[in-house]
Amino acid sequence: MSRQREDPVFNRVEELRLERGLTRQQLAEAVGVHYQTIGYLERGEYSPSLILAFKIAKALDAGIPEVFSIKPFKKGV
């Protein structure tokens, strides 16, 4: 299972989640996943499916490009 090793997907899930004052558990419940999955996503150890990416972006009230990217995000963006 090396999809994430071959094609890393960078994300700002943790940053945006904290900005919105959400816990991992709250975000997990909002998108219907286990709270550990949010941790894996935030650490870049798991790349979400497209549908999960959409759900997370919606829960964080942001667009997909604001949350996920195939290039590293610049600091402070």
């Binding site: 299972m1 219907g32 996943v33 286990h34 999955t37 894996y40 798991y46 979400p48 499916s49 999960l52």
Partner: peptide, 12 residues
Amino acid sequence: LLDERLVAIRDR
């Protein structure tokens, strides 16, 4: 009853 990451882990 599992999320997509857990399903992938289980199947592997």
